[in-house]
């Protein structure tokens, strides 16, 4: 019963935040709605005993990614509200909502028509119990996650390290000022013009 109450509250936060992201004209408010959604998702992770992921969700998403969003919004001064009353592309909203509704129907259709029923719905949907690494309720989830990450998925883990390096280098190259040589360089022994 407690689980159900927590789930309903978390789901309300998640969906409310998501709708807030979509309908808020001001990007700062949209970013703050995104924080609400991410906290709701972290709550759902805790409810499913994925404590480490809940922590990472808050630290990485709410802490780093949203702050990055807000930083860019403030840095560039694009925090003025977008005029949502005008629709620049005729029929874009109707088409967007229609496609989103269609996607929802597809997802729910896939869920309910795929032989889901009884308590073993997930097995009906995807096949097997514990295909690779069984979840042991006795051990902390950090232990199990580390075991899986550093034994079976170690190559993928190294690849993510490479990916992050590439992303960082790419960001630097993209944002670097191409006309850097035109800048006034205040170095000793050099005329400041």
């Amino acid at each position: 019963m407690v689980d159900a109450i927590v789930f309903v509250v978390a789901a309300a936060i998640v969906l409310g935040g998501a709708v807030g992201v979509v309908i808020n004209a001001n990007p700062v408010r949209a970013a703050l709605s995104l924080v609400a959604t991410l906290f709701g998702v972290a709550l759902l992770f805790i409810l499913q005993e994925a404590h480490f992921l809940a922590l990472v969700q808050i630290v990485v998403y709410a802490g780093a990614i949203v702050v990055l969003f807000l930083f860019v919004i403030m840095l560039l001064g694009v925090d003025q509200a977008e005029d949502l009353a005008v629709e620049p592309l005729a029929g874009q909203r109707i088409a967007g909502v229609a496609i989103g509704g269609l996607m929802l129907v597809l997802l729910l259709g896939g869920l309910f028509l795929s032989g889901r029923g009884g308590s073993d719905g997930a097995v009906a949907l995807t096949g097997q119990h514990s295909a690779t690494a069984a979840l042991d309720p006795e051990r902390p989830d950090v232990d199990q996650l580390a075991d899986d990450l550093f034994t079976r998925n170690v190559l993928a883990f190294e690849a993510t390290a490479l990916l992050l390096t590439i992303a960082t280098v790419g960001a630097v190259v993209l944002v670097r000022n191409r006309g850097a040589e035109d800048l006034v360089v205040d170095e000793p022994g050099q005329a400041v013009g």
Partner: peptide
């Protein structure tokens, strides 16, 4: 699914999604 199927691999996948999301945001915002 990780909880329903008693399989930690689902949580590992979330970990990778987080990393890719972070990389995507960095490149996108730049």
């Amino acid at each position: 699914f990780s909880t329903a199927l008693d399989d930690i691999a689902g949580q590992t996948a979330v970990f990778f999604v987080l990393v890719v999301a972070a990389a995507e945001v960095v490149v996108g915002l730049s």
